[in-house]
Write a protein that binds this DNA or RNA. Structure first.
Length: 310
DNA sequence: AATATTGTCAACCGCATAGAG
DNA sequence: ACTCTATGCGGTTGACAATAT
């Protein structure tokens, strides 16, 4: 039957927003709230469609938007969440206060994806790229396994969200530890389900991350790989790991890079540690390990230390 | 200095879905 | 149960900036 356009596009402005338009939109929303996005432009006197107004507000004008470059901790968290959630940018963004899905998507497409490729990892699966077509590859997960992985991902995400919300309602003194966040997950139904799976020996379910590094041992040297060299190094990443245009599209691109095979296990993530942690052991001290000066688990609370330098 | 190439990011497009009627 | 509308989401595009030749 066809879908009605979100608004009458004739006569509506497109393209970059002007400071005047921004001011009108901000003033209107501050005074009236956004209400119905569809009717907002007309009421506010903007020649834009509601969709454009909503996007401008949520991605740029919202007062709680965090400006500036991503910190190493944020980037690491994005990679970890992407390993769990895939391209669900909104879900990932919900775990990074002040960051938008669009911003994270851009970060992923312009920086993080390349970085993983340079390290010989498939940016989609976070598995070593050679596993996708090499002799050591494992058979692809069955549909039921994938379904289970999706289900567990969704549950983990929900748990994470609940955990985050609880942080907002609890005194900071009770939740100021980075490890608390994952401790809650570990002690939750999600962690329980993982423990049961591990205990029962039903290896039917392995997350993409798990598949990527099934030999992981807690505290092993596999964590020695520095996913996030310092900022200065990052700025030079393109010269150190130049990817030709043709190879960029190619999963083999990693072969052009300086990374060696011993980088392949570097896709360790929080989830992997969770998966591989001995069943029934609630000692979470491993969560406090630091890798190359970074906490394995960056704060995902409203930690102001994440604020960026100008 | 001029031009070409590459990178970044704001914005758009179209699909999926929830919810109201 | 079905249709329609509004909104949210992810993929993609295009303008501009930075860098290389």
């Amino acid at each position: 039957m066809g879908r009605a356009p979100c608004c009458d596009k004739r006569g509506l402005k497109k393209g970059p927003w002007t400071p005047e338009e921004d001011e009108i939109l901000v003033n209107y929303i501050n005074t009236h709230g956004h209400g119905s996005w569809r009717s907002l432009p007309k009421l506010a006197g903007l020649l834009r469609c509601g969709k454009s107004c909503r996007l401008r507000w949520t991605n740029y004008l919202r007062p709680d938007i965090k400006r500036g470059p991503f910190t190493s901790e944020e980037e690491k968290l994005v990679i970890q969440l992407h390993a769990i959630l895939g391209n669900r940018w909104a879900a990932i963004a919900s775990q990074l206060p002040g960051r938008t899905d669009n911003e994270i998507k851009n970060l992923w497409n312009t920086h993080l994806k390349k970085r993983l490729v340079c390290m010989g990892l498939d940016p989609q699966t976070h598995e070593p790229a050679s596993n996708s077509f090499g002799s050591i590859s494992k058979p692809p997960a069955s549909p039921s396994t994938r379904h289970m992985a999706q289900w567990e991902s969704a549950r983990l995400e929900a748990e994470a969200r609940l955990s985050k919300e609880s942080l907002l309602h609890n005194p900071p003194s009770l939740v100021n530890s980075d490890s608390d966040y994952f401790l809650r997950i570990w002690n939750s139904e999600v962690g329980e389900s993982f423990r049961k799976l591990k205990k029962s020996g039903e290896a039917a379910y392995q997350s993409p991350v798990s598949q990527a590094s099934s030999s992981t041992k807690v505290g092993s040297t596999s964590m020695d790989i520095d996913l996030f060299p310092n900022r200065e190094a990052n700025q030079n990443e393109d010269t150190e790991c130049k990817i030709s245009k043709s190879s960029t599209e190619d999963a083999n691109a990693g072969s052009d890079c300086s990374s060696s095979n011993d980088m392949e296990d570097s896709s360790e993530s929080a989830l992997q540690l969770l998966l591989d942690f001995p069943a029934g052991n609630n000692d979470m001290s491993f969560l406090e390990e630091h890798v190359d000066g970074y906490s394995i688990f960056p704060s995902i609370t409203t930690d102001t230390s994440l604020s960026n330098a100008p």
